[in-house]
Simulated scan of single mutants.
Amino acid sequence: MVKLKSLSVGLLLSLSTSASIASPYVGPVYDTYGAPANDLYVTPVSNSYAAPRSAPRVSQDRGGYAGFGFGSSELTSVDGDERFEDTNIRAHLGYQLNRYFAVEAGVSVLPMDDLLGDVADFTGVDVAVLAKLPITSRMSAYAKVGYWDWDISVPYRSQYYDVYVGDTDMIYGIGVDYQVSSRLTLRLDATRYEIGDTEIDTVNGSLSYSF
Rank of each mutant, 00 (worst) to 15 (best):
E82Y: 13
E82K: 13
E82Q: 14
E82F: 13
R83Q: 14
R83D: 13
D86P: 05
D86S: 14
T87I: 12
T87S: 15
T87Q: 13
N88L: 11
R90Q: 14
R90I: 11
R90K: 15
R90P: 02
R90A: 07
A91D: 04
H92D: 06
H92V: 08
H92Q: 12
L93H: 05
L93V: 15
L93F: 15
Y95I: 08
Q96T: 06
L97P: 00
N98W: 08
R99M: 05
Y100C: 01
Y100M: 06
Y100E: 07
F101K: 06
F101H: 13
V103A: 07
E104I: 01
E104K: 07
G106K: 02
G106P: 01
V107H: 08
V107W: 09
V107L: 15
S108F: 00
V109L: 10
V109T: 10
L110C: 04
P111G: 05
P111R: 05
P111D: 09
P111N: 08
M112K: 09
M112S: 11
M112G: 12
D113S: 14
D113W: 01
D114K: 13
D114H: 13
L115V: 05
L115H: 07
G117K: 06
G117E: 09
G117D: 09
G117S: 09
V119F: 11
A120H: 03
A120E: 01
D121P: 03
D121Q: 11
T123C: 03
T123Y: 08
T123E: 11
V125H: 02
D126N: 10
D126S: 15
A128K: 04
A128F: 02
A128V: 09
V129H: 07
L130K: 05
K132M: 13
K132N: 12
K132W: 03
K132V: 02
L133T: 12
L133A: 14
P134V: 08
I135H: 08
I135G: 03
R138E: 13
R138D: 14
M139Y: 02
M139Q: 10
S140W: 01
S140C: 09
S140E: 08
A141I: 12
A141M: 14
A143R: 01
A143M: 10
A143Y: 03
A143L: 13
A143P: 00
A143D: 02
K144I: 03
K144V: 02
V145Q: 06
V145T: 09
G146C: 07
G146L: 06
Y147T: 08
Y147C: 01
Y147W: 10
W148A: 01
W148D: 00
D149P: 02
D149F: 12
W150T: 00
D151M: 09
D151K: 13
I152N: 00
I152W: 01
P155Q: 07
P155M: 07
Y156E: 09
R157V: 06
S158C: 04
Q159H: 09
Q159F: 12
Q159P: 00
Q159Y: 12
Y161S: 13
Y161H: 12
Y161K: 08
Y161Q: 09
D162S: 13
V163P: 00
V163N: 14
Y164N: 15
